[in-house]
Amino acid sequence: MTGYGSTVIVHGVSLRAEEGQIVSIIGPNGAGKSTLLKAVAGQLRKQSGRVLLRGEDVSTLSHDVLARRGIGFVPQNRDVFPSLTVEENLEMGGYLLPPPVVRERKEEVLSRFPQLRPALHRRASTLSGGERKMLGVGRVLMMKPDVLLLDEPSAGLSPEYTQTLLQHIVQLAKEGNTVVMVEQHAAEALSLADWAYVLVAGATRHEGPGRMLLENEDIGAMFLGK
């Protein structure tokens, strides 16, 4: 890891994440959460607005170039290669790295997600939802990204797996990774976020430290059923 702070900004909706932080974006369906994330990841064209990475303008760079620059994006659905084995998926994650580095990183990812080790030679399409999401994150971790963008990582996962996954995310942040995630589970997303944004109809309704937002009545009414 470099010593710089990583910064991501989206104009109009302005978003900022510091090194080692977890930033959550919550909001009702159709609020533009995923779109925002895809725009930052370079998967969608931006009409206006800028993305800054460590102060450098990377708005015009495409998804693959951004991936090389250290922005790792885990899409909600198509996050792994289904007909490739788990091992091959990880190798594809490290496609641009020299083979010894790939082997080394593969070990790192497998020790982080030990559930993947027995499944190493199985096709990704045969994994359970939770294993698959871990593979999706693991694939992106092969490049040791500075910023990890997660689009609804817990969508479709069982409650236990959601907990495991969120613990992994906390761990990643502790190690200095910056995590920006869009989440449906508002309570969990807020409780572990250093900073959170509440998006409604494409605009920021609230922002602040996650735990403070948890107590906000408006948000409680919107998402937490209070």
Binding site: H63, D64, A67, R68, F73, R78, V80, L84, M92, Y95
Partner: peptide, 19 residues
């Protein structure tokens, strides 16, 4: 070969991997 198969699975994702 792996890149070719990855591309057959998901072209966008493969591009994101640097293929």
């Amino acid at each position: 070969g792996k890149a070719l198969r990855a591309m057959a699975d998901d072209k966008e994702l493969a591009r994101g991997c640097g293929v």
